[in-house]
């Protein structure tokens, strides 16, 4: 004869079944995400590597060559696949944009956390959120109609080039870097500030020697995130950089980035051809760079915790 209490204890309760169901759902979601990320990676990698395996281009030539003309073969019968101009362009606009943006971002963040009233802080916060939400084509359009003529009149050249690109990206990464810097400044415990002031430090000394120093790893992370954003931005940059796939001679001459060449070219090539595979190789570089940015952020985070 079955003991009713025994069978009740041994069977799974409704609550446990709910738990199991919930856990399965989360596993399913995470599984889907991992599958998508992996397949993107595999797809881009297999296409990107084809340039070197199928089309026999040399990796060294690809990374250091200065002539980009995938549809034309040179005297030895190889396509001209030198991506250095685009790599230079991408790094150029990214680094310049971040150099312009960082001081402004830190200044704004300090104003928001240390100087302004609660109300001013709220207003600035929404201004920054608004900046994040503006579509990049709008930034590109403003860049095209304001920044390009401005650069042309004040710096010379045609106005299209790395300088214009970095001005546009400066505005685009500023909100990212600022809001992350604000977060890292807010994360500095209040008692560090109190301790510093109680020792006779001025407000500026406290900001400079305690606040910024304690927030350094957070601020570096913010800068790297800004770089990742700038590096991956395509449309706005494409509209102002001039899109000449040649080695940039300076900040004012027409240039191109990895992303701009991709968006310009991907519709004009046929799947499986050299030209198409070469674009996939550029995409692979972009993917690897964002991976590197991510790893750097992790490393900084780990170091920040140890201090």
């Amino acid at each position: 004869m079955e003991d009713p209490i025994k069978s009740k204890i041994q069977s799974t309760s409704k609550e446990t079944r709910q738990d199991i169901l919930g856990r399965c759902l989360t596993y399913l979601c995470i599984g889907l995400i991992v599958a998508i990320v992996l397949s993107i990676f595999i797809f881009v990698a297999s296409k990107g590597i084809a340039t070197f395996t199928v089309n026999k281009a040399s990796l060294w030539e690809f990374l250091t060559g200065k002539n980009w003309n995938p549809t034309v073969t040179d005297a030895s019968g190889k396509p001209q696949l030198g991506a250095l101009p685009m790599i230079t362009g991408s790094f150029g606009v990214t680094i310049l944009a971040v150099i312009f943006a960082t001081p402004f971002a830190i200044g704004t963040a300090l104003y928001m956390t240390e100087v302004s009233s609660k109300k001013g802080e709220k207003i600035l916060q929404s201004v920054i959120e608004l900046l994040v939400g503006i579509p990049s084509v709008v930034y590109g359009f403003i860049g095209l109609s304001v920044i390009v003529p401005f650069v042309r009149t004040h710096f010379g050249g045609s106005g299209y080039g790395i300088l214009s690109g970095s001005f546009v990206l400066f505005v685009m990464v500023l909100p990212t870097v600022t809001s992350m810097t604000v977060d890292s400044l807010r994360a500095v415990p209040r008692y560090y500030k109190e301790a510093s002031l109680a020792l006779g430090a001025t407000r500026w000394q406290t900001i400079y020697k305690v606040l910024l120093r304690s927030a350094t790893s957070g601020i570096l992370t913010a800068i790297i995130f800004g770089m990742a954003r700038a590096f991956g931005e395509a449309l706005a940059v494409q509209m102002v950089i001039g899109n000449a796939a040649i080695m940039p001679k300076g900040l004012l001459s027409s240039a191109s980035t990895l992303t701009s060449v991709l968006t310009m070219g991907i519709g004009n090539t046929v799947m499986g051809t050299v030209g198409n595979n070469a674009l996939w190789s550029l995409a692979l570089i972009l993917l690897l760079m964002s991976l590197i940015f991510n790893i750097v952020v992790r490393l900084i985070g780990r170091k920040g915790r140890m201090d």
């Binding site: 415990p189 008692y191 560090y192 109190e194 301790a195 510093s196 109680a198 305690v210 304690s214 201090d307």
Partner: peptide, 10 residues
């Protein structure tokens, strides 16, 4: 001044 919680700088 010395505070209730030890608050050395990092």
């Amino acid at each position: 001044m010395v505070f209730q919680q030890p608050n050395p700088f990092p």
